[in-house]
């Protein structure tokens, strides 16, 4: 009984590993693309990550930054509305405010 329960838990966890891993790797690739200045490429990667980690302010924050820099207004607006009013990391908040101020 205990063995079966442990087995089920492992199977359940194993089925979730590829999704989590792929999303985490996509985020890392996004960071690398962003560093290279490839904002459109970074946006694609962050979108993959955001599809899995929907509640992550970190992912949505970066997605806003790169979509803004890539000039993808619909995505930037969507991400901004999603982040608006949320208590997010001060670093990403400063970066977002900096971008918006520079635009004005």
């Amino acid at each position: 009984m205990a063995g079966a329960l442990v087995g089920l838990l492992i199977i359940f966890a194993l089925t979730r590993i590829p999704t989590s891993m792929a999303a985490a790797v996509a985020f890392e690739r996004g960071l690398a693309a962003e560093k290279r200045g490839d904002f459109a490429g970074a946006e694609k990667q962050y979108q993959k990550s955001a599809a899995v980690f929907q509640k992550s302010d970190r992912v949505h924050g970066r997605l806003f930054v790169v979509s803004f820099k890539a000039g993808d207004k619909p995505v930037a607006r969507e991400e901004f509305n999603l982040l608006k009013g949320r208590q997010i990391d001060s670093g990403i908040a400063r970066e977002i405010n900096g971008l918006l101020r520079a635009r004005d």
């Binding site: 492992i10 891993m21 985490a24 985020f27 992912v59």
Partner: peptide, 21 residues
């Protein structure tokens, strides 16, 4: 091995992305 496997898919969203449920 089991401890690592069970927590693997959960640790990534919680630790890396602060988005755990």
């Amino acid at each position: 091995i089991i401890g690592a496997l069970v927590s693997f898919p959960a640790a990534i969203p919680v630790i890396r992305f602060g988005a755990g449920d």
